[in-house]
Design a protein around this nucleic acid. Structure first.
Lengths: 135, 135
DNA sequence: TAGTACCTGCAAAAAAATTGCAAGTACTAT
DNA sequence: ATAGTACTTGCAATTTTTTTGCAGGTACTA
């Protein structure tokens, strides 16, 4: 799915700035913070606009917030709504992707326990560990 | 376990400010951001010190970063190292706790998939859904 | 192709996070 | 109990991040 269709299908206009930001996000192999995006795209998109674009895309469910334990929030493109997960090396911050997560099992159990909740629509899951070089 | 012992056992000095911040954190029923802590404890602990205390406590593994999808990182006391998880209502931001998470299963599968990793030492898991009032 | 609702950039401000340093404090070993 | 020492803190100042308002520009609709 190309970025333009992704935007339109999410009810967002396919503007030059949005295409630039989401394409950039798509090229990243790992999640990235807003200020890093703003810095890298500085020549093309105003920082203020980057904030607004990420906000809109998050609202539309096409980018996902990720907390890699670095103290700041990172973002990644999640075209299908439910992205993958990550393993982060607590020593060198290397990141690997993980896709399996037993979603149904987890959600079912969580819903059973969570008092006052009617449904579970998504989740965020990250692992921390040591990569082979650091261990 | 009282806060003083918790600090000492983690190799941190039990200072007045640290006790104040961690006790406050312990009283919260939901994770809270650094600036909220700083604001609430403003009369007692300097904001700069709050930042440094959270940083030290995070390093020592007695507070945990939590991403509740709000765009900012929250913190909670995690005396035992591995806290519980949460379900967040995407409409009203109500939060419920969840403890079951099939940790061994998840970690084993993640390690199998994560190329270049030697071990998994922890994880972060949050659920998003709708509470009964909002659904 | 014109209309309109939505987006963007700029300038400015507010808020959050970091740094350096001097004074204060917790812990250790007398 | 006490003095030494290394770690902590508060303050002031700075830097970085995030938000806001508004005028002009642009994507999409009919």
């Amino acid at each position: 799915m190309d970025i333009v269709s992704l935007l339109r299908d999410s009810g967002l206009r396919a503007t030059k700035s949005r295409i630039a930001v989401l394409s950039f996000l798509e090229q990243q192999r790992v999640p990235i913070s807003i200020s890093e995006i703003a810095e890298k795209l500085g020549a093309v998109v105003d920082p203020v606009t980057v904030y607004r674009i990420i906000d809109a895309a998050k609202g539309a469910g096409i980018v996902k917030e990720v907390n890699l334990g670095t103290g700041s929030i990172s973002y990644e493109l999640a075209p299908d709504g439910h992205g993958h997960h990550h393993v982060v090396c607590t020593s060198c911050h290397k990141i690997a992707d993980v896709s399996s997560c037993h979603e149904e099992l987890l959600s079912r159990d969580a819903l059973k326990e969570a008092r006052g909740f009617a449904s579970i629509t998504g989740h965020s899951l990250e692992f921390f560990g040591l990569c082979k070089s650091c261990s």
